[in-house]
Design a protein around this nucleic acid. Structure first.
Lengths: 188, 188
DNA sequence: AATCTTTTTTGGTAAAGGTCAAAAGATTTT
DNA sequence: AAAATCTTTTGACCTTTACCAAAAAAGATT
């Protein structure tokens, strides 16, 4: 619990009282690898924080899945568009490794919004975080080659490449697994 | 003013009082084409609504600009990440055509937040709108070829292709102007 | 109208990624 | 441990785009 508190203290200063309200709504849950956290067509009911684990976001397609995002230790996990809009998700959320989450339901978050001052701050932080992540990615697609995108991933998150199957990384980068295999050969 | 009110009524129901507060902060301004609305390194101070015009967002580069977004009639215009975070913008915002904006300053928006109930709703709407736009674009980069991206733009915003120089569209799609020229030849 | 500047198109060449097919390597299941 | 399944790599061939250079077309300026 201290771990998660530290994580939040980095975002906002929480009074003892606020922390009480907030933490009473959090539930810690453990999931095996390859657990579907949210199925397509379901409406996201959780905003979660990753204590440990890797989660994949993807649109299931007949031939090949379209992996477009990952979440890691100390990050947020949520089909946030579905969570906010209450519209069913178009994508699936699934653990890659064993994962420990601190989960907050939509209803409880509304209560926190009404009972504490920091609710909006946390909500906005999550939004900004997600927006910036997407914005950064957009520039990478416009500016970098797939090889450069792979190299950046390799430099910024080296340990992940060990843990995430390459075909998911290929999709995330926007190329085929074959092309990624050749890139890896080229740069090694 | 009615025009802008209609636009907002589509987002949230505004009481007469709320509209008074809100509209008193809005200022209507006209800009010629090729006006820089925000220079790199400046912090965005406006959240604006386009009555009429086309605006381009781009990172100026030695060789070629990197155009990553446009705004059109009835849309929002803001270097929203800079606006929210109060950090200088990495990109330039510039009109392509003559443009009429309804502008709201950061300070005034804070006042609206504190004085009305709808402020947060509008803020969240703008965030969601921007987030969804980026998310849609992300999938397009993962899923579609440049040719498909051009065709979708052509179908969804046919009039724009008349008004926006092709080299900006090429950059937006993620290819060179030469490649776009060949795509156009191929599909015509 | 003529000149200058910018944008768009065209040509040629090389590099990169896509596709189809199959082999090799890992991982999981029985 | 062997079989079955899934992931990664390799090969061959094709398509598309990048890059370099230059011409043509369109727009802006004098």
């Amino acid at each position: 619990m201290d771990l998660i508190r530290n994580l939040f203290e980095k975002i906002v200063a929480l009074s003892e009282n606020e922390w009480e309200i907030f933490s009473s709504k959090l539930s810690r849950q453990k999931f095996p690898s390859k657990t579907v956290l949210l199925e397509t067509g379901q409406t996201e009911n959780y905003l979660s924080f990753v204590e440990k684990g890797i989660i994949r976001f993807y649109i299931p397609k007949e031939d090949k899945d379209l992996t477009f995002s990952f979440s890691f230790d100390n990050g947020f996990v949520s089909a946030y568009d579905s969570f906010l809009s209450r519209i069913p998700s178009l994508y699936r959320v699934e653990t890659i490794t064993e994962t420990i989450l601190w989960r907050l339901t939509y209803q409880d978050l509304q209560i926190i919004y009404s009972e504490t001052e920091v609710g909006n701050k946390i909500g906005r932080f999550a939004s900004e975080d997600l927006f910036q992540k997407k914005a950064k990615r957009e520039l990478s697609f416009l500016n970098d080659t797939p090889e450069e995108r792979y190299l950046k991933l390799f430099i910024e998150q080296p340990h992940l490449i060990q843990l995430i199957p390459l075909k998911y990384i290929a999709s995330y980068i926007g190329i085929t697994p074959q092309a990624l295999s050749r890139i890896r050969k080229r740069i090694s």
